[in-house]
Structures are given as structure tokens and as C-alpha cells.
């Protein structure tokens, strides 16, 4: 049973240390486990709340993409080696169920369909791929992005797939016929720096609210010096029906900040996690103002987060090797 949410009282409840900097994290739907990936190319499974750690080896490179299936029995990971691995993560001894060569180059993001039958993966080869969750068989390919694809999510209906890329294009695909339905503009998240011959930014994260009326897209802006990490975090609030930009949630004073993930709380509060030169920050936004309504400073730079709505906990993966689980309610 979770305590009543109170974001102002957010505090770190648990922290567990790995040997190397962490990259990504996800909480299992049942809230009993946190999975993370690290710069040593392994995955870690952390038992909540004891912090017992298990190591999974199978990728030949870093894994940016992690997904749990609906019953928390399987974890799917996508690596910079282009491979997708299905893992059995319950009850005690983790094992590899299936491993496929899925993409040419990095996999950046993955999502599982609401009915738990499809896995979508995206990455640097600019192709969206759909896979059978049951067999790993490729179901389809969607081509239409011109640059690296950074993020993917299924619409809660399962009928649409949403993908976002480096240059701020968001495509909405019909899952049944694999056709592009429409696109949205998130170019404020993109910067072309001609002086450095660099393209930077992109739609690093997306989330659709429970009412299915608003899509938030996270990344960065003010990228005056991309190579030097001179940029600040930005979240765009877009109208799902027509793609109109409703609000730009700029987060002032977070040098080197970039929103790695966005999610929604049950009460309609949008949440983003940002890294930055001064550490990691959880940012909370309402639809009434552009500025954040609350900012929670994490002890170290964060690179990913995952909210467990049922328990009002949020897991974060950190550069200082730690997984932290913060409670969004008052200390008991």
C-alpha cells in the first residue's frame, strides 16, 4: 500500500551501488524489481526493497533500452550492439530466453504494446521495427525517419505507434497497416550548430497522458555549444489531436541539462528527469504554468527514470553508479 502522493515531500528512499556508471532503468510493473544497465555492458536486477543485486550478461555493448512485460516475468533489453535480448527475470535465476540481431547500430528505445503482443524498437538505422513478443519474429518495418530515432511509445489503444527523432520529427504510425498517419513538430528540441558542423538534441523521450489528450516530448534547447554541453532541458506539451504546441516547459538554470525521460503522474502532473553539470533533477509540471511546480535535486547526475504509479516511487539511474528509488510522499 503506497502513501498519498506529495511531490513536495519527495525523498530518496533507497540507493544501491553498482561498479560502473548506470545508463537506463525500469521498475517492474509489480514494483518488486528494478532493472538497470551500465557502462560495463551488463544489466542489473535489484530487488525492492532489499537491494539484492543480480547481474545479467549477454550484450556486447551498452543497453539504452529496457522494457518489462506486463506480468513482470520478462525483461527485454536493446543494446548498442543492435541486439534485442528477452530475459526471464523471475523467480530466482535470470536467464536468456531469446537473442536476436535487430538493428544495424544502436537501439535507442523500445516499447511493448498494451496487449503485450508486440515489441517496437528504434535506433540509429532510422527504421522502426515491430517484433512478436512471443517468438521474437519480425512483424514489420516502418521507414520514414531521416535521422536517428530516439524514442518510441505505443498509444494506450494499441492502434498507433509514436516515434521521435533527432531533428524533432514525431511520426504517428498505424500499427495495423504499418502506414504513417501524421506527424507532429517538435523542432524546438533540435539544434543545428553550423559552427560546430553538428546536429544535436532531438526527441529524447515522449509520454501520452492518461486522458490521451496531450503528448509531452522531452529533450534540450538553447544548444549554443552542443560539443561543450551548453544546453538546457526542455519539455514540449503538444495537443495529441492536432499537434499544436500548448506549452514549452523550459527549466531555467540547469546548465548542461537534457531531459532523458518524461512520464505522467495519475493526477496529470508531467515529470521529467534531467542531468546537468550540477547533478540530477526531477522536474514536475502542471498545465497551468510553463515553469516547473517543483524541482527535486538528486544526489548525482541522472540519466534515466521510471515511475511506479501504484507505489508513488520513482527509480533513477545515475552516473555515480547508483540506482536510487525516491518516494514521492512524506517520510514515514
Amino acid at each position: 500500500m503506497s502513501s498519498a502522493i506529495d511531490i513536495i515531500k519527495t525523498h530518496v528512499a533507497y540507493e544501491w551501488k553498482h561498479d560502473r556508471p548506470l545508463i537506463a532503468c525500469r521498475m517492474s510493473p509489480d514494483g518488486l524489481q528494478v532493472a538497470s544497465s551500465s557502462e560495463d555492458s551488463t544489466l542489473q536486477l535489484w530487488t525492492v526493497p532489499s537491494g539484492e543485486k543480480k547481474i545479467l550478461t549477454g550484450h556486447e555493448s551498452w543497453a539504452h533500452a529496457l522494457c518489462y512485460n506486463a506480468d513482470s516475468q520478462q525483461l527485454v533489453s536493446g543494446g548498442c550492439d543492435g541486439r534485442i535480448i528477452w530475459w526471464s527475470v523471475r523467480p530466482n535465476v535470470p536467464s536468456i530466453l531469446r537473442k536476436i540481431d535487430a538493428h544495424a547500430g544502436w537501439i535507442r528505445s523500445m516499447a511493448i504494446s498494451p496487449d503485450n503482443t508486440l515489441l517496437a524498437s528504434v535506433g540509429n538505422d532510422k527504421i522502426v521495427r515491430l517484433w512478436s513478443m512471443a517468438t521474437g519474429e519480425k512483424i514489420g518495418e516502418l521507414a520514414g525517419h531521416d535521422r536517428h530515432i530516439y524514442s518510441v511509445l505505443f498509444h494506450p489503444s494499441g492502434a498507433q505507434l509514436v516515434t521521435g527523432d533527432l531533428i524533432g520529427k514525431i511520426h504517428i504510425w498505424n500499427v495495423a497497416d504499418r502506414k504513417l498517419e501524421r506527424s507532429m513538430d517538435a523542432t524546438p528540441l533540435y539544434a543545428e550548430n553550423k559552427g560546430q558542423s553538428a546536429e544535436f538534441g532531438g526527441v529524447r523521450a515522449m509520454a501520452l497522458n492518461i486522458e490521451r489528450s496531450e503528448l509531452i516530448a522531452g529533450g534540450t534547447h538553447k544548444a549554443t555549444n552542443p560539443f561543450g554541453a551548453v544546453h538546457e532541458p526542455l519539455i514540449l506539451r503538444l495537443n495529441w489531436a492536432d499537434g499544436v504546441l500548448k506549452k514549452s516547459h523550459a527549466c531555467e538554470g540547469i546548465a548542461g541539462g537534457l531531459v532523458w525521460r518524461v512520464q505522467w503522474l495519475g493526477d496529470g502532473t508531467a515529470v521529467g528527469v534531467s542531468g546537468g553539470s550540477t547533478g540530477g533533477i526531477l522536474l514536475f509540471f502542471s498545465d497551468t504554468q510553463e515553469k516547473e511546480i517543483h524541482r527535486f535535486k538528486l544526489p548525482s547526475l541522472a540519466r534515466d527514470m521510471d515511475i511506479h504509479l501504484a507505489s508513488n516511487l520513482v527509480a533513477t539511474a545515475h552516473y555515480d553508479n547508483h540506482i536510487r528509488v525516491s518516494a514521492m510522499y512524506a517520510k514515514v
Binding site: Q196, S197, A198, F200, P226, F227, G228, A229
Partner: peptide, 8 residues
């Protein structure tokens, strides 16, 4: 140009 990649 350019490879001065302190970031990403």
C-alpha cells in the same frame, strides 16, 4: 569537423 566531443 568537428570532433571536440566533450558531450555525447
Amino acid at each position: 569537423s568537428n570532433y571536440d566531443t566533450h558531450n555525447e
